[in-house]
């Protein structure tokens, strides 16, 4: 499951809308082994294409050095599909090489409503996972029974 803050979801969707009809792409970094997306990093689609995206190679090196220096990993790798559903294409699967990342796809084909889905892609195998949008990670592990009594 991907648990993610609402403001980060809004930021990905806004980026996807802004770059439509080209595909938008980026990363949300988080502390190593936390599985918690925290730092929104929109990337330039070097392909500037409605059917392909690619991080610029110099940007990619800079990004990974920065993540390394901060002990961060790409918790989420997102991109948009501008004319098709939010499901990984064959090309997406062929390139996917972060087995611990959540691959988030956003479809902007409908101008009114977006579609956002999350996947693990490991060894060419795609597994969809639920997305839980939360306001904050602070109380994220608190169960329903922990709601304070309302007097």
């Amino acid at each position: 499951m991907l648990q993610i803050r609402r403001d980060l979801v809004d930021a990905m969707v806004a980026h996807a809308r802004r770059d439509h009809p080209d595909e938008a792409c980026g990363v949300i970094a988080g502390p190593d082994e936390s599985d918690r997306p925290e730092r929104f990093i929109p990337m330039l689609n070097a392909a500037r294409s409605p059917t392909f995206y690619e991080f610029d190679s110099a940007d990619l090196l800079k990004l990974y050095r920065e993540l390394d220096a901060n002990d961060e990993v790409p918790v989420v790798i997102y991109h948009s599909h501008t004319a098709t559903e939010a499901y990984p294409s064959r090309t997406d699967v062929a390139y996917a090489s972060e087995p611990f990342a959540h691959y988030v796809l956003i479809s902007t084909r409908d101008p009114e409503t977006h579609e956002l889905r999350s996947f693990r892609i490991v060894d060419g195998e795609v597994t969809e996972e639920p997305v839980e949008v939360v306001e904050t990670y602070l109380f994220a592990h608190t169960g329903a029974d922990d709601v304070p009594d309302q007097d």
Partner: peptide
């Protein structure tokens, strides 16, 4: 020498 997988797709 740094090896990085391309981050790309369709």
């Amino acid at each position: 020498v740094t090896i990085l997988p391309a981050v790309a797709g369709g």
